[in-house]
Design a protein around this nucleic acid. Structure first.
Length: 540
RNA sequence: GCCCUUGUAGCUCAGUUGGAUAGAGCAACGGCCUUCUAAGCCGUAGGUUGAAUGUUCGAAUCAUUUCAAGGGCGCCA
C-alpha cells in the first residue's frame, strides 16, 4: 500500500471512530501545491460540512484528534478546513527501496481479471497513414499501455473497412496506373486515389506477374481490389510498427459480411426495426439517439452502420468486459447510435466507451493546408517518423488531450527539435544514467538516511505518487496526465541533479543515499516514458 | 434551424472531477559552468479563465443566455 492509500485509510478510520461513515474511495488526497501546505492535503472536512451541518474546521479538528499518527510528523488545519499532512522522514524515504526492488514493475498493478478491447486507427486500407492517424495511434496505444499497467488484459484491435465503395475506387485507381505503366495511358478516376503508393502497387504487380491482368474482367477487377488492400495494409502495418504500435487482432468488414451473419444479426433486431420509404430503420431513439437510423437502403444494400453493429456484437461475443473505440471527432454522432444498438441486445450503456480524437490541422506559414489522401498531399506517418522522430511525435500527440483541437506545423516541429519538451525528460534520464554508470561500484543506501534537502524531499513525494497516477490516467483514458507527470518529474530530477551533487568523494554515506534516489528516479522516469511509448536513452 | 466538441498568459496547451495565491513549455528579461552532461538550474515579467447572469462557504470547472472556431445533422463511410 502506498502513502496516499494509507492516509485515506487513516482518515476513514478516524471518522469511523466518531461514528461517521465515509468510505476510502470517496476520499481525495492531493499533493500540496506548495510545501508550506505539507506533503499531502485533504479536503474531506469541506466535503462533509454540508451533510453534517458543521463548520468544516470543527470536522477537521475531530479527524485530527482521532487519527493514527504513525508515519506522520505533523498535521495542520489550514484555511477553510484543509488538513495538511507533513510526513515523517522514514515514510517518505521508504519509496526508494520499494521502487528499486520492483524495478520495471513499479507502477504496475495486479491483474484485475477484466478484459478490455481497444479499437483504434482502423484507417481504410486505401493509402498511407497520415497525421490524424498518427495522433490516434499515439493516443490509442498509450491508453492500451495504461490499461495494461493498471492491471487489465488488453487487446489492440484494428478494423479493416474492406467492403465499401472506397476499396472499389482503390482497385480502379491501381488498374489505371497498371494500364498506364504497360503502355496503355489510362486516367485515374476523379474519385480515385492519386498518391505515389498507388503507382508503387501497380509496378509491384507488374514485377510479380507482368501483364496478366490487362483485360477488363470482373476477376481482374477483384484482383486489383484484393491486391491493393493487401499491399496497403502491409504498408500500414510497417508504418505502425516503426511508430511502436502493434495490433493483436485485425478484423475485416468482409469477414463480418460473410455468409448470413448480417441477416442473422438483423433477425436479432427484429423488435426494433421498421420499414420507411422502402428502407429498413433501426429505432435507436428508443434508447439514446435523437433520430432513427437506416440500416438497409431502399436498394437493398446495407448502410455502413449494419456491419458495424455486427462487428461490435462480434467483439462482445469474444467476452470483453469493456469495448473502447478511439475515433475521429467527425464520428461523434455515431456514439449514441452504436450504444443504442448494443443496449437493444441487453448490454449496459457503459459496455462501450468512445474516445473522440480531434482532427489535426496541418499548418504551413500560419495557413491551413488541406490534407487529402486522394490528392496525396498529406503529411504521412512515415514522414513524421523520419523528419520529427518517433519519440518527439508520440510525446507531442499524447501531451494534448484527445479533445483539444490541434494545429500541427511541420516546419515549426522541425525547428523546435532541440527545445522539444521530450528531450527535457529524456535528458533527465540520461544524466542520471551517466552518474549511476560512473558510480557503479558504490552500493546504494536504500533507506536514504542522508536525504534532507527540499529538492530530494519533493522528488521522493512525486515518485511515490506514480502508481496512483497510473490508475487515474487509465480510468480516465487520459495519457496526457502521464506527460504532465513526466514533465514535473524531469523538472524535479534536474533540480536535484543541479542542487544536490550526487557523487561526493569526501562523504560516502551521502553519496550512497543520493545514488539510491537517483536510481529510483531513473526507474520511474523510464517506466513513465514507456507508458507513452517514448524511449529512455542512457546518453544524449 | 437543431445537436456535439472547443474557447485559459504573446504562442502551444495543462488544470487531480467544486477547493487554498489559475500552472507548464516555448518566446521575453536578469543571473549561474575550475567538480557527476548548460538539451540544465535560479529568478523577473506576463491573466477580467471568450462575455453575462445564476447556483454556494467557494466556480476555469455546474446551470441558463450569448459570441466565436471546428464538426455532425434519416437510406455517405
Amino acid at each position: 500500500m502506498n502513502i496516499e492509500e494509507k492516509l485515506k485509510e487513516k482518515i476513514s478510520n478516524a471518522l469511523a471512530s466518531q461514528g461517521i461513515v465515509f468510505p476510502v474511495p470517496s476520499i481525495i488526497i492531493e499533493h500540496s501545491k506548495s510545501s508550506e501546505h505539507g506533503d499531502y492535503a485533504c479536503n474531506v472536512a469541506l466535503q462533509l460540512s454540508k451533510d453534517l451541518h458543521k463548520n468544516p474546521r470543527e470536522i477537521a479538528t475531530i479527524i485530527v484528534s482521532n487519527i493514527d499518527r504513525s508515519g506522520i510528523s505533523k498535521i495542520e488545519i489550514a484555511g477553510p478546513g484543509f488538513i495538511n499532512f507533513f510526513l515523517s522522514q522514514e515514510s517518505i524515504t521508504k519509496v526508494i527501496s520499494t521502487i528499486i526492488s520492483q524495478g520495471s514493475d513499479f507502477g504496475k498493478h495486479e491483474k484485475n481479471n477484466l478484459r478490455v478491447n481497444v479499437e483504434f486507427v482502423s484507417a481504410n486500407p486505401t493509402g498511407s497513414l497520415h497525421l490524424g492517424h498518427a495522433r490516434c495511434a499515439a493516443i490509442g496505444d498509450s491508453i492500451c499501455r495504461l490499461y495494461e499497467a493498471a492491471g487489465y488484459d488488453v487487446t489492440r484491435e484494428y478494423y479493416i473497412n474492406d467492403a465499401g465503395a472506397q476499396v472499389e475506387h482503390l482497385g480502379e485507381s491501381i488498374s489505371a496506373r497498371y494500364m498506364t505503366l504497360l503502355g496503355i495511358p489510362t486516367d485515374v478516376p476523379t474519385d480515385g486515389y492519386h498518391g505515389e503508393d498507388i503507382k508503387k502497387i501497380a509496378s509491384r504487380i507488374i514485377d510479380e506477374s507482368g501483364n496478366k491482368y490487362l483485360s477488363d474482367s470482373i476477376d481482374n477487377k477483384k484482383y486489383f481490389v484484393q491486391k491493393g488492400i493487401e499491399l496497403e495494409l502491409e504498408n500500414i502495418k510497417e508504418d505502425l510498427k516503426s511508430f511502436r504500435v502493434e495490433f493483436d487482432v485485425f478484423s475485416s468488414e468482409s469477414k463480418i459480411r460473410e455468409g448470413h451473419r448480417i441477416e442473422s444479426t438483423i433477425e436479432k433486431y427484429k423488435k426494433f426495426t421498421y420499414v420507411s420509404d422502402g428502407a429498413l430503420f433501426l429505432k435507436t431513439t428508443a434508447f439514446l439517439d435523437d433520430k432513427d437510423r437506416p440500416i438497409k437502403k431502399s436498394d437493398g444494400q446495407y448502410t455502413y452502420f449494419m456491419p458495424d453493429i455486427a462487428y461490435h456484437l462480434d467483439k462482445l461475443s469474444r467476452k470483453f468486459d469493456l469495448l473502447v473505440d478511439i475515433l475521429g471527432a467527425d464520428h461523434h454522432g455515431y456514439i449514441a447510435r452504436m450504444k443504442s444498438a448494443l443496449m437493444m441486445q441487453g448490454y449496459s450503456r457503459d459496455i462501450l466507451e468512445v474516445e473522440l480524437v480531434q482532427v489535426v490541422r496541418l499548418m504551413k506559414d500560419g495557413l491551413e493546408v488541406k490534407m487529402s489522401k486522394r490528392t496525396g498531399n498529406a503529411v504521412t506517418l512515415r514522414e513524421l517518423c523520419e523528419d520529427v522522430g518517433v519519440d518527439a511525435s508520440r510525446y507531442f500527440f499524447v501531451s494534448r488531450a484527445a479533445s483539444s483541437h490541434l494545429d500541427f506545423d511541420l516546419s515549426l516541429a522541425l525547428e523546435q527539435n532541440s527545445s522539444n519538451p521530450v528531450y527535457y525528460a529524456q535528458y533527465a534520464h540520461a544524466r542520471l544514467s551517466k552518474v549511476l554508470a560512473t558510480a557503479s561500484d558504490i552500493d546504494f543506501d536504500l533507506d536514504g538516511k542522508r536525504l534532507r534537502e527540499e529538492q530530494e524531499n519533493e522528488l521522493m513525494v512525486h515518485l511515490a505518487s506514480y502508481p496512483s497516477i497510473i490508475v487515474s490516467s487509465a480510468n480516465e483514458r487520459a495519457p496526457q496526465k502521464i506527460v504532465i507527470y513526466i514533465q514535473k518529474l524531469a523538472s524535479l530530477i534536474h533540480a536535484f541533479y543541479t542542487e544536490c551533487h550526487i557523487i561526493n568523494s569526501d562523504d560516502k554515506e551521502l553519496t550512497q543515499s543520493r545514488l539510491a534516489l537517483a536510481k529510483a528516479s531513473q526507474i520511474v522516469m523510464r517506466n513513465a516514458l514507456d507508458i507513452i511509448g517514448v524511449s529512455a536513452p542512457e546518453k544524449m
